Amino acid sequence: MDQLITFAMSQPLLSTAWLVIVLLIIVITIRIQMSPIKQLSTQQMTFLVNRESGVVVDSRSEKDYKAGHIIDAIHLDNEKVTKNDFATLEKHKDNPIIVVCSAGLSAGKVTNQLAKAGFTRVNLLKGGMNAWLSAGLPVTKS
């Protein structure tokens, strides 16, 4: 313990940076846990779709969507998201919604917009289509 204190005193910049990183990790972890938007694994998503009539929303580009998407996924492009045009999803407002993007990073914006629009059960697929394809799960091109 004495060595740790000695190190912290002799390297204040490094110690402060380390402390800030640890605090950021803690804050981000708490925010993720407290968020109404949950990140689902491919298995959790499959259960949600099969057991609770979950609806998959694909937020990738039209080209990527046509190249291959999850069966029965509804395409929602960025233009509709920025205009808050969720008319195609209104009948699914009470169902679980799972937003899918390419890698699970850009879906956050779409999930936040859906939550603001009154969709109460919004989720996102952790890892996006990359995780879906890596798991060997089926896609369709229709």
Rank of each mutant, 00 (worst) to 15 (best):
E90G: 06
L19T: 13
A73D: 01
M129R: 03
I97H: 02
T29I: 08
I98G: 01
V99Q: 02
V56A: 03
L48W: 02
H92P: 03
S61V: 03
K141S: 12
G108V: 04
I97E: 02
E79V: 09
A135R: 08
L14P: 04
L137D: 02
T120W: 07
V57Q: 00
G118F: 00
T82W: 14
A117P: 01
G128D: 02
V56G: 02
L76D: 00
V100S: 02
A67I: 06
P36Y: 10
A67G: 08
T42C: 14
V99S: 02
G104T: 06
N130A: 09
T111F: 01
G136W: 05
T29L: 08
V122R: 00
K126Q: 14
L133K: 15
D2Y: 09
S10W: 09
A135K: 10
G54T: 02
K83I: 07
L76M: 10
Q3M: 08
H75R: 07
L105V: 15
G128M: 01
L4R: 12
I71Y: 10
N50F: 07
M9Y: 12
K126E: 15
K109F: 15
R31A: 14
S15C: 07
T111H: 04
A135N: 14
N50E: 14
L133F: 08
D64E: 14
P138I: 05
A8G: 05
L76C: 07
T88C: 08
I32M: 11
Q39G: 14
S106R: 10
Q33Y: 14
